[in-house]
Nucleic acid binder design. Structure first.
Length: 268
DNA sequence: ATGTCAATAAAGTATTGA
């Protein structure tokens, strides 16, 4: 089963690229971040015609997340629990039945950026991470294949960026951010990319300052796995080529492959 | 601070967020 995450930076601007990539890659489940539209404005028919079930948690202009799945949704959850007052749409989770009678739970997040750090945006990020910690702790207690994926806006280590000195002090690399990141990871999540390679890899190249041309990237898009999901991981692919396409997102898709028994989109 | 881009309000261009 192919499960992928991609911050598309606006579905209106990115629809052709997303459809091209979907047709090439044929993932089973996809989490999109920064759809930047209301639920009613998401072009769901374009995905439904390709065999995807579509669930969104949208927001006008900013943020917004979506899940596409060839497997029907058994459950959908929107927003962090006990965070109902959060006006920002940053989490959507789906639960799916697999052909072998099992289950896979996929949570798609757009973790707050947190910059500039001297504004309310930084404490908002840290508070969101505190609530994410409680959520992950609860989800791991289910002891089922669980994939927490998305744009985490977190650079795990200095090796995950081209030049750590450039990112020093940034909300994506601040000690306070990384301490909370490690606290969540240490609950028992496996970083899928790091489980499969020790090579340096990036998932984001800024639009500014020729970052793509200089390969001045960072790794902030992650698939984080429960033990039961990590057991089934067979590979990770970063779809770097999409960054060189026309009208690219500043992020590229990250795909995880799992020995989970998918269910066909249509009856045989 | 940015060799940039997307969305919005509003009618060409500034603002916001990243």
């Amino acid at each position: 089963m192919r499960i992928a995450t991609w911050n598309i930076n606006g579905i209106n601007a990115r629809l052709p690229a997303v459809l091209t990539w979907l047709d090439e890659t044929k993932p089973d489940i996809v989490g999109l971040q920064e759809i930047k539209c209301l639920d009613e404005n998401f072009p769901r028919a374009e995905f439904e015609s390709r065999g995807y079930n579509v669930e969104t948690h949208g927001q006008k202009s900013f943020n917004g997340v979506a899940l596409l799945s060839k497997i029907p949704f058994d459950e959908v959850h929107r927003g962090l629990p006990s965070n109902d007052e959060d006006p920002q749409s940053r989490l959507i989770e789906g639960v799916f039945s697999t052909e072998d009678g099992g289950v896979v739970r996929v949570c798609n997040i757009y973790l707050p950026n947190g910059n500039p750090v001297d504004t309310e945006k930084f404490p908002y990020k840290l508070g969101w991470m505190d609530r994410l910690y409680d959520f992950v702790e609860q989800r791991l207690a289910y002891e089922e294949p669980f994939i927490l994926m998305g744009d985490f806006n977190l650079i795990p280590t200095g090796f995950d960026c081209h030049d750590p000195s450039v990112w020093w002090g940034d909300a994506l690399f601040r000690p306070e951010s990384l301490e909370k990141w490690r606290r969540i990871v240490n609950l028992g999540l496996t970083d899928a990319l790091r489980a499969t390679t020790s090579e340096q890899a990036f998932t984001f190249w800024d639009f500014q300052a020729g970052a793509w041309r200089r390969n001045a990237g960072i790794r902030i898009d992650h698939l984080m796995l429960s033990p039961q999901a990590a057991d089934r991981l067979t590979g990770v692919t970063i779809h770097k080529d999409t960054r060189g396409w026309d009208k690219p997102s500043d992020h590229v898709p990250v795909e995880g492959d799992f020995t989970l028994a998918g269910r066909p989109a249509k009856a045989a």
